[in-house]
Amino acid sequence: MDFLELVNFYIIPGLVIGSIYALGAVGITLVFAILRYAHLAHGDLATLGAFLALAVVTGFGISPLAALPIAILGTAAVAVGIDKVFYEHLRERPKIVTVMASLGIALMVRAVVQVIWGVDSESYVKGIVRPDVYFGLRIRDREIYTVIAMIALVGVLQVFLTQSKWGKAMRAMSDNPNLALLSGIDNKKVVMLTWIIAGGLCAAAGVFLGINTELKSMMGWNMLLPMFAAAILGGVGRVEGAVLGGLIVGVAEELSVLVLPSEYKAATAFAILLFMLLVRPTGLLRGKVL
């Protein structure tokens, strides 16, 4: 296999799926760092976002990219609502209770998708898209959009976290929650912001997965493990780490086919997760270990 083939058939698809994982992993890492629990309904929120966009695409006849902002807003609102109704009153209890609740929420969100949209595969647009060739590199337009959108969304988030007052408050809450409270930072607002961001990014992950593959009611749940592997690989609480982790997990999954039967592609993320917990639980960029 020559180099171009490696890039075309493994690296490029790996970076695309990795960008999608990155979008989800950033939300997971923020929730992990600020609210301090593993949110197991994250994948299914992505599924919901993807199907919300489908409703907009079929309802108004616009492109999935145009539907993205609506899906982001809708999913962010659902995430905030779930927190208010189901998670908020568990805040004083051990965090693992919320993890359990989130497993139930995963089931509930998926059930809603299955009732409304059924369990058959759907897609935003019909037909096969052939890749364009640039200097021997075979790339589809949608793959370029996916990577650019990931970079843009995470870039805006980074600016928000480092430059704005509330972004800094989120970092402060992640860094030292007691001191943040002593400084008068409003915990409720920080929690709400976290869910808006995490929910919005979930929707983006779901929509781009739908654009690049197809929409299924299990699509998000199947992304949960790679997204967590990415967050832990990068270092919990590190936004740039989650992006790096997502890209590595995505590329590793594609490359795994070279050494493992392709049925075991999904096992790559699990192997990375266990390996990191074994040798470097703080992740590549020295995150938190809860």
Binding site: L40, V99, F270, L273
Partner: peptide, 10 residues
């Protein structure tokens, strides 16, 4: 060795 969240994921 870690909090139970990690076990849940694993």
């Amino acid at each position: 060795r870690f909090r139970s969240d990690y076990l849940a994921i694993a």
